[in-house]
Structures are given as C-alpha cells and as structure tokens.
Design a protein around this nucleic acid. Structure first.
Lengths: 243, 243
DNA sequence: CGGTTACTTGATGCATATCAAAGAGGGTGG
DNA sequence: CCACCCTCTTTGATATGCATCAAGTAACCG
C-alpha cells in the first residue's frame, strides 16, 4: 500500500544511475531512445516499490501516472458487482502499466510478490511526445501488441477447454521468459491457483486438477517453488493450439 | 479557388468529394484533422466495398493496408486449428480496422452485409505520422479504447453467465448506436445467432434460448428484421453488471 | 413456391462448478 | 527449533449450466 520512493532526495544528474543500471530498458518504453532522450525521460520518473499484495492502483481512480515494471510481477484484474474477479493480465519486468484513453484506470493492479516500478506523471510523459515522437510510436506499438494478446485471450476464454487453457498459459509464460532472456523451460509460476483460475475463466479446483492431469499424461512435471518443467513440449503445443 | 484557412468549414469544399461527404469523419481516425491535414490523408485513400460474406482480409496475411469502416458491419474472428471460431469483435461505421504491430494481420475480417471502407496503405499512413503527429495520437487513443473494451470482453467471457452475456451484448450494441447518433432503443442485431455465440463463447442454441428467456422475463421484445426492443432497461443493466 | 439457411425448442450428456475435507508448505512466536 | 496456524493446494463426491444431438418451424431468396 505505502509506496517507498527510492528517489526521495535525488536530483537527476546527467547520467542518473536510476536508469543507467536499469536491466529492462531494452524491453520497455525506453527501448528506442538515445542518450539525450533517455535523460529527458529519466528526469521525470520516480522509482517505487510495493510488497506482496499491495494495491498499486485501482480501477476507476484518476489515471495520474503510468508505470514501467522493472522488477517482480503485477496482477491486473477487474471485479463484477458481486465479487467475481477476472484477472486481465500479469505484468512482468519490461511491461507497461496504466495505459488508458480515459481519465481513470480501467483495471486494478496489485503486487504479486515484491514489485519495482518506475512511475511517470501521465501529463509529463505526454508532454514529451511532441519533442520525442518516438515515445508515442513506441507506446502505440506496445498497445498494438497488447491488443493482439487480448484477442488471443478471447479465443482462450471463449473456446478452449480447461486442458487447452492451462497448456496455452504455460506456453505463454515460457515465451515471456524467453522475451526477458530467461531460460524457457522451467516455467516459473509465481501466481496462485486462484489467480490462474481467474485469468483463465476456471476455478482453483479445476486448475489444480488440470495440472495433475497434464502431469499424469507426462506433459509437465511440477517442482517445488512453483516451477513447471515442460516434459513434452510438442504435445503441449498441440494441445494449446487445439489440435 | 477557395481560401485555405485552416479553421474554416469552407475547407470542405476543397476536399475531394470522397471525404467531403463522409458522414463518419468525426468518429474515425480523421476526427482531429484540420482541412489541410484532411486533404493529405484523403489523397492517399481508396474507397472499397464488399458484399455479404466477402473476406476483407485474412489473419496471418501481410498487413499492407489499414481501413476505416464507413458503412455496414464487419465481423472480426480468429480460428483454432480444428475450426472452432472466436469472433473477436464487430466493427461499425467509424471503427478502425487493421491495426497491428507485426507484419501480418492478427484477425480475419469479413463483411456482414454490404460494407464500405476507406483503405490506406499502411506505410503511407505511417509516413504521415511525422508531419501529422495528431494522427498517431489519435490512433493511440483508439487503440487504448479497444484495449479497455477487450478487457471488458475478458470479464464477460471468463466470468459471466449466458444471460449476463446476452444482456451485456445488447447494451453494448445499444451504446454503440448512441455513439453513431442512432437511437439507443430498438437495438439492431444484424449478425446471426452463430456470430453472437462465437462472440460470447456460447452455442447458437444457448443464444437462442437465452433470448427467449429474456423475452419471457419481460426484459426484451424480439421484432422482425433483427430488432430488439429493451423493455426493461434497468433490469437488463443489473443483469449485465452481475447484480 | 420450393429450396435453403437461420432460428427455435426439446431431450440428454458432459465438462466444469460447487461443496467438502484432507494434505502441504511457510511463516511466526514461544 | 519446534509447534502452531494460516493459506494454498490437492483430491473426492455431487450438482448444474451449457453443449450436444435431434427435430421441427420460420424466414429468406431466387
């Protein structure tokens, strides 16, 4: 809940170490920027951290900031009036948080374990668009990718069986590990069965049972610490694709 | 032959008639453009038409063009390997088609009845971004809206019952009619039960049964020509919100 | 009008939800 | 360092909402 500002008294100098040692720069908003542009952007960001379960922002609240995830995992979700929850996505280092065309956020965001973010004032970032159009182009690209992922998720939610959903989920996590230069195979699953269930339109029990079934069928192996080894990648891919 | 004052409606007279008599300009990409910019954009578009069932573009094919829908309804969909279909959206006049950050389209698009589009070369449109940054800003705004809608659809697909899905669907259609300055109440439903089913993650039978149930409960009235009268708007809204 | 496609309705089945309870970690305080 | 507690996970038994299978009916169109 209470963000800890890592930059409380820091004046941003020519080479702010805050960005110089950022290890996700190539995957974020910042990727296309040159040194001078980086300094401009870096000049208006703050680093903040959250602990497990902390609320980062709430759906419907004024969208004053946007964020880059620099460490940890963020859970995005929306609620129905009676409490039913849909997890609309999980954000990993390099992902962008808070994009909206309205005055308010469209999903809520919570920390899933310790989370590090860099935070920008939305208006200040938009102010940079005129002098650094690359930024806006980059944001459009990221939004387009999100949109494509959202459509894949619609296919998953609307037309896939529980087994196909879990298989797709694991493969997506694996692909995202590759994108972050993490080995694809032991898939790290930091979220709870309940989070997964609300992400895939299932219940925790069904998620658990389906993991066991995939294990019994020899497609995966469950290891301690939420690690999943993909023991039959081809079969998993076929299952995920609906073959 | 006319003065080129950038702020004047007179500019319309200078526009090619193809854009001058466009009745969805205020809802499309073009909304924020002034007369001179409109002429630039208009100079590189083509008007094309499709008949019912025609394929407009295919998922996976090279994304060479982007489109504005100027008339009719477009069905967007994705297929699984075994033929299962998910309708990822319906596009109405003013909607944008073909946004992607990849080399290829991410969904297929078909005409649902007669459709009129204006078509742009993707590279030429992107070329305009540098001189008309408003265009890129506008596209980002539209993409952000799409993203918000996609997340609502995830909630619908993952957590809503058949009745809640149909209610939400009808209310969304109604809202979009308002956005196009069409009366909200007789909701026009030009798509088949099968299209609706593939959009909501149901079967045609369940869609049909659910319409009948809503009719029996007095929430809607079904009329000829695919018109649906919302006879109890509050109840429908409560149902859609999950109350 | 006849053929075709879309829609509705009914009977039955099944995948997943729900209800219930027993393990399995994981952290904390004694 | 252990014992306890809390939460998460797994497994089992049962229920149910929607899918599937199967006709019949209405709408559409050449």
């Amino acid at each position: 809940m209470k963000p800890r500002l890592a930059t409380d008294n820091v004046i941003n100098l020519d080479l702010p170490s805050i960005c110089a040692d950022c290890d996700v720069r190539e995957m974020t908003l910042c990727a296309p920027l040159d040194g001078r542009e980086m300094r401009q952007l870096c000049g208006l960001l703050q680093r903040i951290e959250f602990a497990d379960g902390d609320t980062i922002l709430d759906e419907g609240e004024p969208a004053e900031h946007v964020f880059n995830v620099t460490g940890g995992v963020v859970r995005l979700f929306k609620l129905l009036a009676d409490g039913r929850r849909t997890v609309t996505g999980f954000l990993f280092p390099g992902d962008f948080l808070g994009l909206t065309n309205h005055e308010t956020y469209v999903s809520s965001a919570e920390a899933l374990g310790d989370v590090k973010l860099c935070r920008f004032s939305r208006t200040k970032l938009e102010g940079l668009f005129t002098t650094v159009p690359k930024l806006e182009k980059r944001l459009l690209g990221m939004a387009s990718n999100e949109l494509a992922a959202a459509q894949d998720q619609m296919v998953l939610l609307g037309r896939k069986s529980a087994g196909e959903k879990i298989a797709s989920f694991l493969l997506t996590l694996s692909d995202r590990q590759i994108a972050r230069a993490v080995a694809p195979d032991p898939v790290l699953v930091p979220m709870t069965r309940s989070d997964i269930a609300d992400y895939l339109g299932l219940t925790t029990e069904t998620v658990s049972r389906t993991f066991t079934q995939l294990k019994v069928k020899g497609l995966i192996r469950l290891e301690a610490g939420g690690k999943v080894v993909l023991t039959n990648l081809d079969a998993l891919k076929n299952l995920a694709a609906g073959t």
